[in-house]
Write a protein that binds this DNA or RNA. Structure first.
Lengths: 288, 288
DNA sequence: AGTTTAGATGATTTAAACTCATCTACAAGT
DNA sequence: ACTTGTAGATGAGTTTAAATCATCTAAACT
């Protein structure tokens, strides 16, 4: 296999391809960032190795010979094929494309996007949410779901829940006055609900004076709590950054584990350097 | 166009393609006549330029990554395409394939085949006759036909006719005894007949004592004349070599021009070096 | 006719590609 | 478990292919 083509240089073929496509050595030279001399050498080398004239030289004007046309067609097709694959691969190597829930995107991914790109200047990060073309190659989906559904190896963060309030607000008196608590009821019925009952029990509360207001995304509950100086029962992952930046605070309550987790389906199948770096980074960040 | 692939070397891609196809750097090295070191360098260079791992390294065993598989597919396809075109072109450059009538082949082409290959050691000559795949690219047809049908530029030899006999035979006495003359009646009715009448007139003969025996190919008439020590009325082109080698002789008769010629349809369209050399050679040989 | 432009050609320089020597890690045989 | 052999990685050194520079030619356009 590949017996004959070993005798000709691929760079010469590339030079020929470009010159053939553009009908000019000069333009080919520009395209390939070379001098016209290099193109001329390449092509005459090619012609003598193949024992064929590829161009008619009519003084300073050139045109393809019949053989030249044939060869140009094949080389153009061949290089185009290689090139587009290369393009795809390079893009995959220099960027990560992540898709996830709007809550996770808004509260975790987007705020730390800059930090990631700072730490990995050669990788650009694209974030998308919603029903995007999910299983398209090279897009990393970060799903929120039932730990029992996800493969163990795919889990990047097991969720705990707790109650948070806006920074500076007085700790609520859990037993006396009526309390409004924002929480989440997933649109997707098959997801385990937020473990509010377990949390109440763990913290020795009966919850009779708590009035729940439910949103279908945690994000909204958190925003509402911040807007109204209220309380929200949400996952520690989403609240973490707001706690750090003193926009939310935590009280003397203890968090409870849930059956929910963030996971990346077939995590191990992402093999590009950028994907691996991203996955390592986000797993470390979430669990640190 | 071709923006991205400029950053990677085609030789590295070739090394990758081979290693991917064979699953081994060592085998790739053998295929490309390189050292395994060169392959290793090429591939790691490629990987770092693309920012992707193309092979899993499990100790001394390697296997393609998902990205590697994709790229290998495209590069293999691309190179295969280029390679087969190259193969075709090289073959066209190093050989001429000629198809012609059996008479011309037997009397002119085949006898001088060796001489041509001697003079052009890098070109091999293939001769075929009959209803071969005529207009296939790169095959040169030498046709025998009406000068008024052929393009002027395509004609390589205008035919003259004369009478020849075997070497050493006594000159025939044209006017007295009955004479047997071999001549040709083409199967193809649209071809101009051999100009026997014109020849008789030019040589001041009336032909009343001449008995014609007709074959449908000149070749047969010539052979028959030689076998029977007889006379043949045939084209000067076909008899030339036999005259030179003293197998036939010519008498005091004068040759006449005919409306027949040998020509190569679209002669100018044959552009490979081998074809051009062949055409120059045969035209020179026929007209010298 | 003079000027400009595209390409050819040959000598020289530069940089990419290849090899050599050395090292590591696995696999197979004892 | 301890050799031995094999495949590949790595870094330094060498070679050769590929690019440039300088010069020249021929056509095209003022």
């Amino acid at each position: 296999m590949w017996g004959l083509s070993l005798q000709v240089s691929l760079q010469a073929l590339k030079a020929f391809e470009s010159a053939a496509r553009q009908g000019s050595f000069k333009l080919a030279a520009e395209e390939l960032s070379l001098t016209p001399t290099a193109i001329s050498h390449h092509i005459s080398n090619l012609e003598s190795r193949l024992n064929v004239n590829l161009f008619h030289r009519l003084g300073r004007r050139i045109s393809l010979t019949g053989t030249g046309i044939r060869l140009a067609k094949a080389t153009s097709d061949g290089f185009r094929k290689i090139d587009s694959a290369l393009e795809e691969v390079m893009k995959a190597g220099s960027s990560v494309r992540v898709t996830t829930t709007s809550s996770f995107a808004a509260m975790v991914l987007i705020p730390s996007q800059h930090e990631f790109e700072q730490a990995n200047p050669d990788i650009s990060m694209e974030i998308s949410t919603g029903e995007s073309v999910d299983s398209q190659s090279y897009i990393i989906p970060i799903r929120f779901g039932d730990v029992s559904v996800a493969e163990d190896a795919d889990v990047i963060k097991s969720e705990s829940f707790n109650v948070f309030g806006t920074y500076g607000m007085a700790p609520p008196s859990w037993s006396n006055e009526p309390i409004t608590l924002f929480t989440t009821e997933w649109k997707n019925q098959s997801l385990p609900a937020p473990p509010l009952a377990a949390w109440l029990e763990k913290n020795g509360l009966d919850g009779s004076n708590i009035k729940l207001k439910k949103f279908d995304q945690e994000l909204f509950g958190i925003q509402q709590a911040m807007a109204e100086n209220g309380l929200v029962f949400c996952s520690t992952t989403l609240s973490k950054r707001l706690l750090k930046s003193n926009l939310l605070q935590q009280f003397e309550t203890r968090s409870v584990k849930s059956d929910l987790c963030y996971y990346v389906p077939n995590k191990h199948s992402f093999e590009t350097r950028s994907a691996i770096r991203f996955l390592n980074w986000i797993e470390y960040m979430l669990n640190q």
